Computed example of a mutant assay.
Amino acid sequence: MSAAAMPELQIGDLVFIRIPVLFFRKVADTTASWTNHVGIVTGQKDGVWQVAESCVPFARQRSFDAFVARSENRRYCIRRLPVPLDADQQQRLQQAVARRLGTLYHTGFALHSRRQFCSKFVHEVLREACGIRVGRIETFAQLLGRNPDAQLGFWRLWFFGRIPWRRETITPASELSCPHMTTVFDCA
């Protein structure tokens, strides 16, 4: 896909990718989605668009090109809020991101932890900066119960024998399907 075919990015755009590592593929399979990772566009640095993300081992920013280069088959999707962020919201978004950079990744996906994971990072940044909520907060019981094909054996192993059924989380898939956002680009 040529760069000319992609629309101009905006601060606050969400960028969805699929990381081709077993653990992240299990996240996608469990949520019945192609995506397993999300980041948020924060602006430009030296003319290059930047995406902030929570990733292993900690939250950071990288160029848009480096972010999407990690995606399986370079597939990515850009979703946008219905109204562009004003200058004040953009500044608050950048400040919310800056406060989270360097925060360790949470491999247990606990929404109420001090640590971050990608969908929690995006959810918190938009909520804090703009009062906008993206995605669906749900328990592991709700998430795993919705997908009869979810491989509970993998998740039991991941959680050392005990799935935290009541733990609240949020997924990239729920943010991808968020009804008040618009898909502005998908190179599927």
Results as ranks from 00 to 15, higher is better:
A66Y: 04
A32M: 09
W165D: 07
Q116Y: 00
Q44H: 12
L144A: 13
Q94I: 06
M1V: 10
V184Y: 14
F23D: 03
A59L: 03
S71A: 11
A98D: 12
D149H: 15
Q61M: 11
R75F: 08
H106M: 00
R92G: 07
P179A: 15
R60H: 07
R92K: 12
R80V: 08
S71R: 03
Q95L: 11
S177L: 09
F117W: 00
P164M: 03
Q91A: 13
W158E: 11
V41G: 04
Q50W: 04
E168G: 04
G135R: 00
A150T: 14
E168S: 14
I11V: 12
F154L: 05
F64S: 06
W155N: 04
R166P: 07
R162S: 14
A173T: 02
T35S: 11
A66M: 08
Q151R: 10
C130W: 06
W34T: 09
E138Y: 02
L93K: 04
L14K: 03
M181R: 10
I132D: 03
R79H: 08
R18A: 04
A3V: 10
T35M: 07
G43Q: 09
T169S: 02
Q61N: 12
E8F: 12
V48S: 08
P82M: 10
V38C: 03
S2A: 09
F16I: 04
E124Q: 09
I19M: 06
F160V: 11
Q94N: 15
T30F: 04
F16M: 09
Q44P: 15
F109A: 00
I19L: 15
I11Y: 08
V122I: 05
E124H: 04
R75N: 14
T107L: 00
E138R: 03
Q94V: 14
F121C: 01
R114I: 01
H123I: 01
M181F: 11
C178Y: 10
P7A: 13
T42I: 08
G12I: 05
R25N: 09
P20I: 03
S33M: 07
S2R: 11
R156L: 14
D13T: 09
R146M: 10
W158T: 06
Q91L: 14
D65W: 05
V15H: 05
T30Q: 03
R115K: 10
R146F: 08
Q142E: 15
L176N: 05
S71E: 08
A188M: 12
N147F: 07
F24P: 00
F23K: 01
G12Y: 02
C130N: 12
R115M: 01
D29R: 05
Q94F: 12
I40D: 03
A87L: 15
C77Y: 01
A173P: 02
E128F: 07
R162D: 13
G47D: 09
A141G: 09
R75M: 05
P164T: 07
R80G: 11
K120W: 00
K45D: 13
I132A: 07
T107K: 00
A87I: 12
A69E: 09
L104S: 02
